[in-house]
Each structure stands twice: as structure tokens, then as C-alpha cells.
Design a protein around this nucleic acid. Structure first.
Lengths: 332, 332
DNA sequence: TCTAATTTGTGCGTATGTATG
DNA sequence: GCATACATACGCACAAATTAG
């Protein structure tokens, strides 16, 4: 009994017939994990096909993790689970609690038949391009969080263009890829605008901003808002020895600075929401109860994951800007 | 112990495997300058390879000045000063903020030259064993967080025993592997014991415990403490409709329940640290300032990563129990 | 000194997957 | 679908150097 069967009179494309017959052979137990498949040349000769046609079928199976290739040897069955329809390569910047939300929402929206593997580049360009090269050809889709790494576009260009999706941060060089991203500048500007009346009681807004890890868009949006409305403002890299003073509003992007501001303000008996204010970036569970509630402007990671899954499944070219969520609490 | 090791099922080309195993033998001191390597024919026979394949590996090493050849005699080690690139397979259970601490401390302690790749099994036994099988042979060390998955020992047994390290949770079946782990039972028992005087003002301790994700040791340590000291106690899976009442102390393991308890207590005008108490598991930045400070018992993940790196670099067989840190704040 | 066995070195042919035009 | 170049792997043949007996 031959593993591959081709019906030339069928409507079904030949490469699809090869894929299904191999799937069937695995499903029936005729092919087991580790078994070698007939070579490209053998299948070409046996069924008078082009080598490229057979290759197309094998690439499909490989991108789903069902078979693997070894140069100079051949193709081998790697995974007997033929229910995997697609495999997704998901490249995050760093590991933090928000990534879990994104991962959960992506996998939930894509469904059982899609396998999602997670990777991290930790803002290291070398790690970034190594990961892409090492996993080339092994996935149906590549979802990439480029952060603000230099020369990401050239690194990404090793991947087939139609399989790449950009997540969270994008830039003009990546315009040719579909994406679900944040427009940090607009989101911050609009978020601040919505609470503008409440901000009138403050004399000055202080942004605590770290250039290496945080998106420049946040800085731009902040400056745009303050200059447009003629609000006194200041940008500092870290709190350091600075002590919060009355009628100051702090826009804080990370937890370390958030805790610092609150502790220092307490030392000089400033009351949050009355004497001074805080806006914090990205909602977490505890911010609801810290000091009676911290006002947050935050990305909706659950929504981002859901939208990403949608455009992957629909195969449309889309570039979606994800809105921010504003949660007003007692801290302003 | 053979100098050369070949895994035919690996993706890595055979000649590359020969190259790396000789590099490793030199790196570990097994091969010294002047030592003779096994001959081309011997390696060919031992591993059923083509002579040319072995030759390709030796040519690579020779072109880099690591070995030299003498016609009619054999190949000899010429240079011991080579940098061997190590790769670590790091398998976590789930993605959360603590994992970043662990990752950072492991990579910082191992140094620049070591590549650490992160994977997650999401408490799924199938995913767990698939990941091990798919990455077999590709890494110098395998660091595994087995959580409380069933039959981990048999799944792990596919890996070479001397390359495996166990992290965080262990069990008697994994006794043959070196590890850096927590003794949850003892840590919880001792942690509670240290604050026992402060707990006298409460009538009852309530543990919010989820069996599927959390280590049983926590439950055991909690029960041991309460029964030993004859303290009324209760274990519930989730808070649900329950409303905290006066003189109750809650031992909370995750943020969702932490927020729930605090919000519900506020609704019935209970004051934290006076009317009711909270002990929370695993320190995070914000817990210092939530409600005037939450008392925490927590693993020191930075320390765990550091110790793990140490035993990997020293090549000693060690099983290290990591202590917990107790931070007493106003919540009790 | 001769011989046989072993070793490296070289050349050629075949087969496999990968990548590009 | 075809053609070409490349990397990996296997196998065979023969030459030259070394060693042991």
C-alpha cells in the first residue's frame, strides 16, 4: 500500500492530495513518529509530478509541526497529532504579567486546532534575529513584537512576508505587514484629554519616562497634550531624590516609580487625589485598591489578542490601532 | 564516557554534532592539548557514519586551529583555549511576573556566553512531554519546573540524566536530579510560626487554595501549623459569595482573591490589621503600599536563579532548599 | 628489509533538502 | 514547472605516511 495517492482527475490540487494522504497515513497508524517519508524525488518520479509540487505539500506539513526535514537525509514524521491545523510563532519582548493576558486571548480566539509557541527577545537584536532564523519554515504565522529595536525590518525580512504579523509597536519600515498595534502618541493624548477638567487643579504634570524600554510615542503624546493646552510639565528619567510637592501630578509608567512616588508623598503628608495626583500606565488588579484606587490609562491586551486572532483567521490585510482604556479613580 | 556523541534524531547536522561534542570534551577538560582524537575510521564505525562526514567535522575544527592532523598518525588537540557556547532549555509552568525575576537572575549568573531559551507547559502534560521530545539533544542543560504534573518523572526520563536540573517544585520520583526547590510545607509552616504571636487575635485562619495550580505543600504546611497549635482553620477553593467577618485571617495566594477580600471587607467596614487580617503569598512591589502594607511570605526567585546557575556551573550534584522570606506589615 | 595494517588526504559519484530566479 | 547553485550525507577508490611485526 502506497503512502501517497494521487487522483489526477480530481478537482483537489495535487499538493493538497499529497498532504491529505500523508495525514491519513499518520491517522491510520501506517506512519508513526520518527518514520521517514519518501523523498521529494521519489514522489516526483512515482507520480510524474514536479518536485516543487511535492515540496509545497511537505512545506505545509512542516509549518504545522507534523513532519520535520533534515538536510541530506530526508523528511521524518515529528508529531502524530494531525489535528494541528496551524502553528503560530509568537515573539514577545520581555516576560511580564501583561503577556499572559495577550497569550490567553490569542489562544482562546484561535481555538484548539492552533498551536502557539512563545519566545522572548529581551530587547536584544542578536537574540531577535537568531530566533527568527532558527524557526524559519517551522510555523504557519509569525507574530512579532518588535518593541523599539533597531533594524527590525531587515531582520524580519528573512520571513515570508505573507506570514508576518506585527504586535503592539510598529514603525514606518514595517508598514507592509498587517498589525494590531497601539498609537501611543494618540492614545496618551486622548486619554489625558478626557480627564483634562480634573487636571486643572494641578500646577504641573511630571512624566517619569525611560527612553530605552518605553515607546517614544508616550513621550510625544504627553508633550503634545501639555503644549497644546499650555500646561506646565516636566520629563524626568527617574524619581531619584525628588520629593513630590503639592499640586503636582505624576504620570508614572512602571511600578517601581509608582511605589516611590506614593511612599515619598506619604513622608511629607501629602494626600493622594487632594494634594497631589497620580496617573499610572497599564491596569493591574492591585491598582484598584492601592490608596483608594489609582487612575490608569492602559492598553487592553485582551482586546489586542482577540483582534490579532481575527485578522489571522480572516487572512485580510489590516492594520488595526488598538484604543486605550481609561479608568478614573480617586488618585486625580 | 565517549568523547563523541551523536543523536540521529536531532535536527543538528551530524558533522556539527561531532564538532560540538569535541569542543565540549575540550571545554570540560576531558581532552587536553596533545591528546589524540579517535580516528576517522573509528568514529565512522562507532556511529555508522560516512568517513566523509567525520572528515568534514575534523576539517572544521582544524581550520579553526583547535586540532591538527598528522598524515599516517592521526588528529591531535592543538588548542584548549576555545569558548564553548552553552545552551540552556528552561521550561516554566506558566507565564507570570515572577518568571522574569528568575530568568534575569539565571542569565545574569550564567553570563553572556550562555544562551537561555524559555518554554512553558501551561500545566498540560501533553505539552510538557512534547516540548522535551522536540528539543531533545539541542541543549547543554535542561532546567525544568515540573509543577505538580502527573508522571513527570517518566516524561523527563527521555533526557540525559546528567543534563537535567529541577526548579521550584520537586517530588520523590525526581530525587535523582540536582535541584533548587522550595520545601513548601516547611516554608509555610515556619513562616506562619514566626508570626504566631500576632495571629492570636484572630479566631480563624482561612486559606484560599486552588489544587490544580498551587503546590500541595502549601496546604500541608498550613494544616500542620493550624493543627499543631490547635488554631481553627478552613480551606476554600475561592471566595465566591463569602463575606469576610471580624477576627478572620485570610491567607491568600493570588491577586484576584487578594483584591476580592479587601473590597468585600471594605463593604462591611472591616479595618485591615484590626478587625481582620491578610497574609499574602509572594511579594510584589505594590503589596508594600496596598492598604498600608500587606504581610507576605514569599519565595526569593532572584536567589533561586542564582543558586541554580551556581550548581550548573560547578557541576556538583546538589539539591538545595530555598528559604522563604517573611515581610511583616500592617495587615496582621 | 619487506609486509600488512592503519591513518590521513584526495577525487569522484550519488542522493537528499533548501533557496533563488 | 524548470534550472541552477548550495549544504549535508553516504560510499568507493587510491595515494601517501606511519607503525608494528
Amino acid at each position: 500500500m502506497n503512502i501517497v495517492q494521487i487522483d489526477t482527475s480530481s478537482n483537489e490540487p495535487k499538493y493538497r492530495q499529497i498532504v491529505s494522504s500523508i495525514e491519513n497515513a499518520i491517522g491510520s497508524g501506517e506512519l508513526r513518529k520518527g518514520d521517514q517519508l519518501p523523498s521529494l524525488n521519489k514522489i516526483r518520479d512515482d507520480f510524474s509530478l514536479s518536485r516543487d509540487t511535492v515540496l509545497m505539500a511537505f512545506k505545509d506539513l512542516r509549518s504545522r509541526g507534523i513532519i520535520k526535514s533534515v538536510v541530506g537525509k530526508g523528511y521524518y514524521v515529528q508529531n502524530e497529532n494531525i489535528k494541528v491545523r496551524k502553528k503560530v510563532f509568537l515573539l514577545f519582548d520581555e516576560l511580564n504579567a501583561f503577556k499572559e493576558d495577550l497569550y490567553r486571548s490569542i489562544t482562546a480566539s484561535l481555538g484548539e486546532s492552533v498551536q502557539v509557541d512563545i519566545f522572548f527577545h529581551h530587547f536584544n537584536p542578536k537574540v531577535f534575529s537568531n530566533l527568527l532564523e532558527q524557526n524559519l519554515g517551522d510555523y504557519t504565522y509569525y507574530v512579532i513584537m518588535p518593541a523599539n529595536l533597531p533594524n527590525v525590518a531587515t531582520a524580519i525580512s528573512v520571513l515570508p512576508q505573507d506570514k508576518v504579523y506585527i504586535l503592539d509597536q510598529t514603525n514606518p519600515e514595517l508598514a507592509k505587514y498587517p498589525s494590531v498595534h497601539q498609537n501611543f502618541e494618540r492614545n496618551i493624548y486622548e486619554g489625558l484629554n478626557k480627564i483634562e477638567p480634573a487636571l486643572k487643579k494641578y500646577d504641573k504634570i511630571v512624566l517619569l519616562f525611560n527612553r530605552t524600554k518605553q515607546p517614544v510615542g508616550i513621550l510625544k503624546g504627553f508633550k503634545l497634550f501639555c503644549t497644546t493646552l499650555n500646561i506646565p510639565h516636566e520629563v524626568v528619567e527617574e524619581l531619584g531624590d525628588r520629593i513630590p510637592s503639592s499640586k503636582e501630578l505624576f504620570f508614572v509608567l512602571d511600578d517601581i516609580n509608582l511605589v516611590q512616588v506614593i511612599k515619598k508623598a506619604k513622608n511629607v503628608n501629602l494626600k493622594l487625589g487632594k494634594d497631589y495626583g497620580i496617573i499610572s500606565y497599564n491596569e493591574t488588579l492591585l491598582k484598584e485598591i492601592v490608596e483608594g484606587g489609582i487612575t490608569t490609562i492602559s492598553a487592553d491586551f485582551y482586546e489586542m489578542g482577540k483582534k490579532l486572532a481575527e485578522i489571522m483567521l480572516s487572512n485580510d490585510f489590516q492594520q488595526i490601532e488598538n484604543e486605550n482604556k481609561l479608568i478614573i479613580r480617586n488618585s486625580i
